[in-house]
């Protein structure tokens, strides 16, 4: 394996792990449901995407050929993350989950 591939894989792994952790910290630490929604949809999706990408580079550099399964999973995650966030936000608004005090504006009641 070339040195460049090694650096790229390590950097992507740490980047991905870091963002996954940041997403989880956001989930644990932010004050209300709607703000907590931001951590998993963005940080975690990007983190897992980076880990997938490092896996693609790793397996293609130890010459097992290129397999697009990882890319498929990543594309799937990127497509589904906004949908599940939207569905959960709708459910939360329907139930009437409380927002944090200094939120500007409020959810709709349809």
């Amino acid at each position: 394996m070339s040195l460049f591939a090694e650096y790229a894989i390590s950097a992507l792994l740490l980047f991905g792990g870091g963002f996954t952790l940041v997403g989880a910290i956001g989930l644990a630490r932010l004050p209300d449901f709607y703000t907590r929604l931001h951590g998993p949809t963005k940080a975690t999706t990007v983190g897992v995407g980076a880990i997938m990408f490092s896996s693609v580079i790793y397996f293609s550099s130890v010459d097992q050929g290129i397999d697009f399964s990882e890319v498929l999973i990543t594309v799937f995650l990127f497509m589904t993350a906004p949908v599940s966030a939207n569905m959960l936000a709708k459910a939360a608004m329907h139930i009437g989950v409380e927002t944090v005090k200094d939120t500007e504006g409020g959810p709709w009641h349809q």
Binding site: Y34, L37, H38, T41, K42, T45, F78, A81, P82, A85, N86, A89, K90, M93, P107, W108, Q110
Partner: peptide, 10 residues
């Protein structure tokens, strides 16, 4: 939903 600090809710 995927970009800067915004989530579309409804």
């Amino acid at each position: 939903s995927l970009t800067p600090g915004t989530v579309s809710a409804d």
